[in-house]
Design a protein around this nucleic acid. Sequence first.
RNA 1: UGGGGUGUCGUCAAGUGGUAAGACACGGGUCUUUGGAACCCGCAUUCGCAGGUUCGAAUCCUGCCACCCCAGCCA
Length: 565
Amino acid sequence: MPSAEDGKHLDFIRSIVAEDNRTGKWEGRVETRFPPEPNGYLHIGHAKSIVLNFGVAAENQGCCHLRFDDTNPEKESTEYIEAIKRDVRWFGYDWGEHLYYASDYFDQLFDFAVQLIKAGKAYVCDLSAEETRQYRGTLTEPGRDSPYRQRGAEENLDLFQRMRAGEFENGSRTLRAKIDMAHPNLVMRDPVIYRIKKVPHHRTGDKWCIYPMYDFTHCLSDSIERITHSICTLEFEDNRALYDWVLDQLGVYHPQQIEFARLNLEYTVMSKRILLTLVTEGIVDGWDDPRMPTISGMRRRGFTPESIRTFCEMIGVAKRDSMVDMGKLEWAIRDDLNHRSPRVMAVLEPLKLVIDNYPDGQEEELEAPYYPDDPPKMGYRKVPFAKELYVEREDFMEEPHKKFWRLAPGREVRLRWAYLVTCTGVVKDATGNVLEVHCDYDPATRGGDAPDGRKVKGTIHWVSARHSLPAKVRLYDRLFTVPNPSGTKDGSTFRDHLNLDSLLALEQARVEPSLAQAEPGARYQFERKGYFCVDSKESEPGDLVFNRTVTLRDSWAKMMKKENK
RNA sequence: UGGGGUGUCGUCAAGUGGUAAGACACGGGUCUUUGGAACCCGCAUUCGCAGGUUCGAAUCCUGCCACCCCAGCCA
């Protein structure tokens, strides 16, 4: 993993920072920033940026600012601001005093614009949006100068003041940087730096009716905050020319912009536009739907901040476009949860199991470790055992596959932490569905070990029919059926690739009684089934709801899948 | 046909002229009261392609090819 400590394998950004520290380029300062626009919730792609920016700063005793890039009030809101702060905090990162808003710089930005106008480097343009587009030219043809390009500074100043005063209609005029309409880089063809938008801003109210554009705002915000390394994604590479131009023209402090490849994850989307659509059209149940790749969705799903950080470290930082496979994210969360989750028994799809030779009214309490690999770590709980139990429907096969080691007629298996039982028969309904499985237990095997040393291949989990608690369990699957749902090569859209079975709600699950007081958000391993957490929104003491974070690795399922191909 | 980028194992990703790290995945095995975990072994004669320079090239040169981004008064 890239880190400042091991001194090698630094990713290219950390290498630049290390080199800058060596040469004293920034007097040893390292100041980064995470600059989200509050127009949606943060997702796993933002996590990559957060981990990078806060990580690089921390490794170099620097700091990372949280700055809201709030220059487009039409799409932004305080709800998003609060959600973003909550998510960054959840990761454990601290921006300290460094919470900023681009909107706090509006006055300074306006002054900088005036400075540009006075220097003959910006002008007010009366072209409409459509005309501006036509004058811009194309990828292969140069643009043409706006007829307003030669206005004098005085006139520009007057017009710009009046734009600010609200004298002109939306879209009627813009302030443009005067660069080069024939520039091969389209970004440099006299970019608009201020537009008229007569809409109130969530922080500045109706103080402004003109708002600065990203390219003008971002570099100057970085400059004002004395950022050293302004890290952003690849699609801003062309914008770097303008970033540098603005700061050079104004002669102000000049950070270095560095671009890296954004995260793409298989079977999901990072596009805020699509994510917003999923939410507004009710395709998912809100920004924090556990199927969403949002930080809030993943949190509700049961992911830990540590696992997401590990994942980000696994995938590295580079400049090439990539598509990361889900397996890596799953590995990261399993690895983390494996070490911190108490084991507990839950039967997702119950099948009644009756132990015929177990005394009718009898019951006993069995000791079961919460963490079998190192019992002292988490201790033990009591699990009630009785004549009637529930076991997992799929742990019984009347006509077992040759490699199926679980329950089947005549077969002996171990009930986890309880007894060895041998299947003696089944009860079916008229249509042949198995209603009950009958067994005999071996009283000498209490705890699960046979005194005669005989081995059983299969161990299954169970729950007492009478003592267990009802619970709802939600099984989640990928939201899309194809690795790259937003790829539109064949003209398809994300809508064509929605996985209609991404949510499976099991209403009849039974869990062991120790879970009665499970706290919202608490994480468990349901033995042999996966990692689950108590839903933080809908679970209540008498009405438990669990979300499956991720399954356990399942070599049996893998084998079956391979066989069916 | 303009400009900016990128091409190393199925997927990420090191490597910056001295003879292809690591991780995930995958295959095999050990162990096992989770078909989990853990542990062991294996897994690129080859770095988009073609030439060239060199004792020696993924690394240098030349020419191709492929993919991504840019024509918002979005960020």
